[in-house]
C-alpha cells in the first residue's frame, strides 16, 4: 500500500510535467485560433460590410462548431458578445467586449498579457470608418504574431523542460521515499 502511494505520487509529478508542457502547446494553439478568427472577422467587416454583431455571430458560429473544451471558448466568446449586443443595445461595444473577455475561465490557456491584448481589441473596434477597423484588426494580428513567434520559439525547450522537471521530481520522490 505504501509503495502504491509512493508510485502514484511520483506518477502524478511526472504527469504534472507533461500537463504543463501541454498547457504551453495549448497557449500557442489558442493564439493561432484567435488569429484565424480575427482574419475571418476582418473579411466579414471589410468584404461583406457586416455590422459587428453580424460579423461576430458568423465567425463565432463557424469557429465554435466541431470544437470542444478550451478550443470552443473563443467561438463562444464571440457569440456571447453578439447576443449581448443585440439584447443590450444601450451598452457600448467595448464595455461588453471587455466584460466578456474578463469572463473567460480562469484556466483558459492564455497569459495575462494576451488577455489584455484581446481586451484592447474591443476598444477601437466599431469606431470610425472601415480603414480604422482594418488598422485595429491588423494591430491585434501584429501583436498576436509576436506572441505566437515567442511561444513557438520557446515551445520546444519549454516542453522538454517541463517534462524533464516532472520526471525528475517523480524520480526524486521515489528515491527519497523507497
Amino acid at each position: 500500500m505504501r509503495y502504491a502511494g509512493i508510485f502514484m505520487m511520483a506518477g502524478a509529478l511526472m504527469a504534472g510535467g507533461f500537463w504543463a508542457a501541454e498547457k504551453w502547446k495549448e497557449r500557442v494553439q489558442i493564439l493561432l485560433l484567435l488569429r484565424q478568427m480575427v482574419f475571418y472577422l476582418k473579411g466579414q467587416i471589410l468584404y461583406s460590410n457586416a455590422t459587428l454583431p453580424e460579423a461576430l455571430g458568423e465567425v463565432g458560429k463557424r469557429f465554435q462548431n466541431g470544437r470542444s473544451g478550451v478550443f470552443a471558448e473563443p467561438g463562444s466568446l464571440f457569440l456571447r458578445v453578439q447576443k449581448r449586443m443585440e439584447e443590450e443595445s444601450g451598452i457600448p461595444f467595448f464595455a461588453i467586449w471587455k466584460e466578456e473577455v474578463e469572463r473567460l475561465p480562469d484556466d483558459f490557456p492564455m497569459s495575462a498579457a494576451d488577455r489584455q491584448t484581446l481586451s484592447s481589441l474591443g476598444e477601437n473596434l466599431g469606431y470610425a470608418d472601415r480603414d480604422m477597423q482594418e488598422r485595429t484588426l491588423l494591430f491585434y494580428l501584429e501583436q498576436t504574431e509576436g506572441a505566437i513567434a515567442f511561444l513557438k520559439k520557446e515551445s520546444e525547450s519549454r516542453t522538454k523542460l517541463y517534462r524533464c522537471l516532472g520526471m525528475a521530481a517523480g524520480l526524486f520522490l521515489l528515491v527519497m521515499l523507497v
Binding site: 467587416i45 460590410n49 457586416a50 455590422t51 459587428l52 454583431p53 453580424e54 449586443m85 443585440e86 443595445s89 444601450g90 457600448p92 461595444f93 466599431g126 469606431y127 470610425a128 470608418d129 472601415r130 480604422m132 477597423q133
Partner: peptide
C-alpha cells in the same frame, strides 16, 4: 450619439 450607436449596432463603419 447614443441613438446613432444603437441604430448602427455600434458599427457606424458599415453605414459609411
Amino acid at each position: 450619439r447614443e441613438i446613432m450607436e444603437i441604430f448602427s449596432k455600434h458599427s457606424l463603419y458599415a453605414f459609411e
